[in-house]
Amino acid sequence: HFTSQQLQELEATFQRNRYPDMSTREEIAVWTNLTEARVRVWFKNRRAKWR
Rank of each mutant, 00 (worst) to 15 (best):
T35H: 04
D21V: 05
K44R: 11
S4L: 13
I28Y: 03
E26Y: 11
D21M: 05
E26D: 06
T32A: 07
T13R: 15
V39H: 02
V41D: 13
W31M: 15
M22A: 10
T13I: 15
E36K: 04
R16A: 09
E26H: 12
A48R: 13
E36R: 02
Q6R: 03
T13N: 14
R18M: 14
E26Q: 14
V41R: 14
A37D: 11
N33M: 07
A12C: 15
H1A: 12
F2S: 02
F2A: 03
R40K: 08
I28E: 01
Q5K: 12
M22T: 08
F43D: 00
R46A: 06
R16T: 10
L10D: 00
F43L: 02
E9P: 02
Q8V: 10
V41I: 14
T24W: 05
W42G: 00
S23Q: 14
R18L: 05
V30T: 12
W42N: 00
T3W: 05
R40F: 06
R40I: 04
S4M: 12
R16W: 10
F43C: 01
N45D: 10
N17V: 08
E11P: 00
A12R: 13
K44E: 14
N33H: 09
T13P: 01
W31S: 15
A37W: 14
T24N: 05
F14I: 02
E9D: 12
T3P: 02
S23V: 12
K44S: 09
H1I: 11
R51Y: 11
A48D: 09
V41L: 14
F2I: 10
N17S: 06
Q6I: 07
L7T: 07
R40T: 06
R38C: 15
M22I: 10
K49P: 05
R46Q: 06
K44G: 05
A37T: 09
T35Y: 03
L7D: 05
A12S: 10
Q15F: 07
E26M: 14
Q5V: 10
T35W: 05
Q15S: 09
E26A: 11
V41K: 14
K49S: 09
T35K: 03
T3S: 09
E27H: 09
N17D: 07
R51G: 08
H1W: 13
P20C: 05
E11L: 05
A48V: 09
N17L: 07
T24Q: 14
R47L: 08
V41A: 14
A37M: 13
R38Y: 10
N33P: 01
N45L: 13
T32S: 06
L34I: 06
Q5I: 11
K44M: 11
I28N: 01
K49F: 08
E9N: 13
L10W: 04
W42E: 01
W31Q: 15
K44Q: 13
L7S: 05
T35E: 06
E27F: 11
A29Y: 03
A29T: 02
R38N: 09
S23T: 11
E9W: 15
R25G: 02
F14V: 01
E26T: 12
V41P: 00
R16S: 09
R16I: 12
T32E: 02
A29P: 02
T35G: 03
R18D: 02
A37E: 14
R47E: 03
R40C: 06
R46W: 05
T3C: 07
L34E: 02
T35P: 07
L34T: 13
F14W: 06
L34R: 01
L34C: 06
T13V: 15
W31D: 09
A29N: 01
L7Y: 07
R47Q: 06
R16N: 09
E27P: 01
K44P: 01
R46M: 06
F14L: 01
Q6C: 05
Q15Y: 07
N17T: 08
R25F: 07
Q6S: 04
R51E: 10
E36D: 02
M22D: 04
V41H: 12
V39Q: 00
F14C: 02
W50G: 08
F43I: 01
W31H: 14
P20Q: 02
W50P: 06
A48W: 07
E27G: 07
Q15W: 08
R46P: 01
Q15E: 09
A29V: 01
S4H: 13
Q8M: 12
K44C: 09
F43H: 00
L7M: 08
W42A: 00
R46K: 05
E27L: 14
R25N: 01
E36N: 04
T32L: 15
R18A: 09
R18Q: 13
V41F: 12
R38E: 15
N45R: 12
R46G: 01
T13L: 15
S4Q: 13
L7F: 05
R38Q: 15
E27R: 13
W42L: 02
Q5A: 11
R38A: 15
R18S: 06
R18E: 05
T3L: 04
R47G: 02
N17C: 14
N45A: 12
T32C: 13
E36L: 05
V39P: 00
L34V: 06
W42V: 00
R38V: 15
Y19M: 05
L34F: 01
N17Q: 06
L7P: 00
Q8G: 08
L10K: 01
A37Y: 14
A12K: 13
V30G: 10
W50Q: 10
V39T: 00
L10F: 02
S4W: 14
Q8I: 12
A12N: 11
A29C: 05
K44D: 07
V39F: 01
R25I: 14
T35D: 09
T3Q: 03
R18K: 14
R16Y: 09
K49R: 12
K49G: 07
T3I: 04
A29S: 05
R16E: 09
F2T: 02
N33C: 07
V30N: 12
E9S: 12
Q6V: 07
T32Q: 06
P20T: 01
M22L: 14
I28A: 01
Y19P: 00
K49W: 08
E11T: 01
S23F: 10
Q6N: 04
R18V: 05
W31R: 15
Q5F: 14
T13S: 15
L10T: 00
W42H: 01
Q5M: 11
A48T: 08
F43K: 00
Q8R: 12
H1C: 13
V39A: 02
Q15R: 10
T3H: 04
A37P: 11
W31G: 11
W42F: 03
V39R: 00
Y19H: 07
R16F: 08
N17P: 00
P20D: 02
D21P: 07
A29K: 01
I28D: 00
Q6H: 04
Q15M: 09
Q8T: 10
F14G: 03
F43V: 01
A12Q: 10
K44N: 07
N17H: 07
Q8F: 11
H1K: 12
R47W: 04
Y19W: 11
N45F: 12
A37I: 13
T32P: 02
F14D: 02
T24M: 13
Q5R: 11
Q5L: 11
S4Y: 13
K44H: 09
L7A: 06
R25W: 05
L34G: 04
W50L: 11
L7G: 03
W31P: 01
W50R: 07
N33D: 09
T24V: 08
Q5Y: 13
R16V: 12
